[in-house]
Structure formats: C-alpha cells, structure tokens
Write a protein that binds this DNA or RNA. Sequence first.
DNA 1: TATAAAAACGATCATACGTTCGTTTCCTGC
DNA 2: GCAGGAAACGAACGTATGATCGTTTTTATA
Lengths: 196, 196
Amino acid sequence: MSRTRGSSGPKTLAAINEAGLDLIYTAGYEAMSLRELAARVGLQPGSLYNHIETKQDLLFDLIHNHMVTLLARVDAELEGVEGPVERLKVFVAFHLDYHIERKREVFIGSAELRSLTPKNRKAIVALRRAYEDRLCDILKKGAAKKLFVVSDLRVTAYALLAMLTGICTWYDPKGRVSRKKLIDIHTRLVLDGVTA
Amino acid sequence: MSRTRGSSGPKTLAAINEAGLDLIYTAGYEAMSLRELAARVGLQPGSLYNHIETKQDLLFDLIHNHMVTLLARVDAELEGVEGPVERLKVFVAFHLDYHIERKREVFIGSAELRSLTPKNRKAIVALRRAYEDRLCDILKKGAAKKLFVVSDLRVTAYALLAMLTGICTWYDPKGRVSRKKLIDIHTRLVLDGVTA
DNA sequence: TATAAAAACGATCATACGTTCGTTTCCTGC
DNA sequence: GCAGGAAACGAACGTATGATCGTTTTTATA
C-alpha cells in the first residue's frame, strides 16, 4: 500500500494540527508522541513528515498562528472605539470571548513556552508583549485623562490579564455560568479595579 | 567504588528534591531526565532509587508537600483575624508572599497537574479546592454582611485567585517593583472589585 | 567491635522516541 | 493520456529513557 485514495495535503495538515492541538493540550508537548499523533490522524509516523518539518515546528506553528490571529482580532475589535472606558470594556469582552473559544491554543501558548526553541520562544514572547501593549495603551490613556487610577502600568496590566486569562483553565461553556454573566462579572471587576 | 564517604539519606533526598524542583520548573517534568537529575546531585542514575520510588512519586511529593504547607500556613495566618475585610487583606498579602517565595512550587503545582497519575491528580485537586474554599468563605461571609458585592462566588474567587497567582509567572524579586508595592496594588484591585 | 542497614556504583534491560529513506500509489496539469 | 509531483507506506536507525539488580563500601546500632 502507499498513497491513500482521496488524500489531500491541506486536509491532512489540518487534521494533524487539530489532533496535535488536542494532544498537546491534554498531555503536553513532551508527552505527546508523533506515533500517537499519527495514529489519531490515521497515518504511519513517517508520513507526518510530508506535512510538518519537525515536531518542534508543529508546536511553533500552532502557537504562532494563534498569536497572530489574536493580535489581528483585537485590533479589529478596537478599531473605531472611542474613549478609554469603552475601549477597556471592548477589550475585556473580546479577550474573554477569544479565550473561551480557543482555550486550548491559549493554554498551550503559555504552558508550552518552555518547550519552544530559544529562537522560537523569542518570537512568541514578542507577539505576546505586543498584545499586552494593547491593554497598557488603554490604561495609559485612561490614566492621562484621569479616568483611571493606575499606580503601576505593567503590574496592573499583568494582574488584569492574569485574571482574564485564568478562565481558560476552568471555564466550561456547557457549565452553570453563561458567557454573558462571565463577561459581566469580569468587566465589573476590572472597571472597579481601575476606575478613579 | 560504592557508598560515598559522608553521604546521608535525608541530605541526599533534600538535594534531589531541590534539583528536581529546579529542573521541572525550567524544563518541565517530561523533559527532565533522571540522568540529568542524578548528574546535578552527583549520583549515578540508579542511585536515585535509594531515595525515591519512581519519577512520578518525586513529582507528586513535591506538589503534595507544597499544597499541605500552603493550607497550613494560610490557616495560621487567618487564625484570630476578625471581619471579612481584614481577613481578605490578610489572605491577599499572604497569598502573594507565599507565591513570590515559592514560585517554582506554585508553578509546577498547576503546570504539571497533567503529568500526574489520575489518582495523584485527584489528591492534589482536592487540596487545591480546599485552598480555594478559604477565599470563598471570606467572600461569602463578607457578602452576607453586605460588605462585599459578589454576584457569583466561585467565578469571583477564581478570577481573584487567577489574578493573584499570575505574579509567579513574571514577578522578579530583584526587579523594579518592591514586594510591598506589589501587595498594595493587588490589595486595592481585589478590594475595589468586591467592595460594595 | 560485630553486624545489619543504608547508600552508592556500574552495568544492563526493554522500550519508546523523533526522524530518515526507499518505494509505491494516487492525483493533477499539460 | 502521460509525466511529475504529492502523499502515503513500512522498515529501520540511533539514541535516550525509566527502571532493575548484584555488588561494594560506609555508617549506625546494639
């Protein structure tokens, strides 16, 4: 046997990415074997290399795509929104929505930073920093207009981001709490925390 | 050659735990090899088994000891402190102090949950839940006395814990921000977020 | 001081891993 | 309809891993 009937490159790659995402999320990058991944996709281990360069590249591509998407979407959401308070509300709502929707990517994006090559890690950390800057900017402008009280920009931003990102370690979309209620609670926590 | 002069059980075990803590923190449990661990301690790989049962037990003991200590210390700190507001302040200050001091254990305690045996994981999750309950109790009593406004107990507690725990992913004791300032900022964020 | 336990060595086992490669079959574009 | 690339197979390579074991030396106990 050799090439399977009906197989196509992009489709197989998508399947590899999806299965990889799931395996890395549940087991961790180091604990995931390419043999298990191949089995999930219905391939022989060696065949994976028709679609990926290395195991490391698989991880990097997953995280990188996620970060690029995150940045593009937050900018799209904030486009045209005026005033620090309103912008902060939009940021919180978007952040939570995205982190609920793509909790696996988000989790991997921080938990598996250590599994990245130094060079790869540097690239991801830079993107992450750019995302943090979006929040910092909002806080800074709000503080300048005396709408917010922020005693330390970075610390406050990190504290808020940690709070908002935390949900993807426990939130269950099918659980007791609705998405709307979740956003309401967090929006209030954030606004009360920084409002003058 | 065989038994090293001056070697003693407890001392070697402590060295193994310290080196293991460091390796797991920086590289991750799966990525840490017992050969590397042994080399750090100055032993042959096989000799580790005079002190640990398995690699899994090493991880579990590290996390378990940490959780038991965490619970004991939070209870000691809260002992005799009256009033929800005051108790919340004490909780926040203690939590941050502990998480700065033992950031490696804390990080491993959540990042390596997935590397634990189901049975071991269950034990740790139960202890973690008990710790969360300490905060929930404070919030609940504060809400009952109309001192706090808490629309959902668990969600609020998780949000606050995520925020407070986040510091151990970025805080550097030798950095720009002092421990006191860190506690001040977070105390304010927490109190403003829940105060009526 | 004799003796049992403790703590180390060093060799080794079985297995699992990421990756490579030659080959075969299928799909696509001229 | 044919040629060439794409996508799969299956076997294999070299290495690293967690763990075991018999042996030896040191420490502690009685």
